[in-house]
Design a protein around this nucleic acid. Structure first.
Lengths: 192, 192
DNA sequence: ATTACTATACCGTCCGGTCGGCACAGAAAA
DNA sequence: TTTTCTGTGCCGACCGGACGGTATAGTAAT
């Protein structure tokens, strides 16, 4: 099967590496991380396995790149929300809640699916741990510890439960929870 | 390699089936669910692979049994805590918090490690979803919805983050969170 | 003989990783 | 200009090992 070289794929910039990462994400979201194989990535990206191995010397390297991208995007999503919010004592916490509680974005689904595979490898988890460690003080700024921790944990709990599809809440209940978390993040300290 | 039959392992009742499940849990806890193979279970249980296949017609059957055991034990742990608590309006919620926030028990670690593998198979996740769906009304009894949900989510969030080893809290902070959740579960509705 | 269970050998498949080589684009040499 | 060399990006065949699953022979107790 002689494959004609597609136009725009020449020695042109590093575009195909990103295409491979996109393909990997598509696979992970569609079929779960279990089905993330080098062959599958190659097929999805319209590339040969050798081509994948050229850019990622091992499968772990591919996973590292995926984790790195996911972490960066999470960080960016929070900052984007913060930019949209007025300056207030608990802006960071509020932004975090808003970035986390939305209809699951692409990146959330990637993160959730990756978690399954990444969780069992401490080396791959390291950047994730770091991400969480740095995030806690960032979103706690200007907020009493207990309140920040509570909002953080509940938000993360909801996020994780939805990614694992075990959230027992109806859509209406979810909306009430979202309101409650926003209220807690922005000032009111009274829980019904 | 002729293995001598251990005493008490005859066709006798205590069926080695449970021993195999114990072995599977040990593997999952020690090396993660990725390394849970039929050969490994057989080796760990001191049994041949044929023996494993006799009791569990497929690997999925083994996983189903593991999930089932984990779910049942979680339920039992909550009930055990409830029995130790005096009758009060929010006894169920309080018991849930106490059962969840403790130094991670064996069953918690099993659940966490299993989650990685089970999450990608909707059929295996079904019992888990069911477990969560039934638990919500149980622990919400006699408590306003928003408070029950908040405590539930934060508790679950802490549980999941600790299982994935991404919890950014120090031991002291964890203690304060535990106190806060207990306070919220048992009446006080004021968050600092 | 039947039942309950164990042990071993084997098969097909899948997957990560290796390897030799091709195509192409400059840069260097002629 | 033409030729040669070199590096990059990619291809695709192949290997070795692991794993799920099958088949079958055997043992011990009822």
């Amino acid at each position: 099967m002689t494959k004609t070289r597609r136009p725009g794929q020449g020695p042109g910039r590093p575009s195909s590496r990103d295409a491979m990462l996109d393909a990997a994400e598509a696979i992970v979201v569609a079929h779960g991380a279990v089905r993330l194989t080098l062959d599958a990535v190659a097929r999805e990206a319209g590339v040969s396995k050798g081509g994948v191995m050229y850019h990622f010397p091992s499968k772990n390297a591919l996973l590292e790149a995926l984790v790195s991208r996911a972490v960066e995007r999470s960080h960016a999503a929070r900052e984007a929300q913060a930019d949209k919010l007025p300056d207030a004592p608990a802006r960071a916490l509020h932004a975090y809640v808003r970035a986390s509680i939305n209809d699951p974005l692409h990146n959330d689904r990637v993160s959730g699916a990756l978690l399954s595979v990444v969780a069992s490898d401490p080396k791959l988890m390291a950047p994730v741990r770091d991400f969480f460690r740095k995030r806690l003080p960032a979103i706690s700024e200007g907020v009493p510890f207990e309140r920040a921790a509570l909002v953080h944990l509940a938000t993360e709990g909801l996020w994780l439960m939805e990614l694992f599809r075990v959230s027992p809440f109806t859509r209406a209940q979810r909306a009430r929870i979202k309101d409650l978390l926003t209220r807690l993040a922005t000032g009111g300290g009274q829980v019904p």
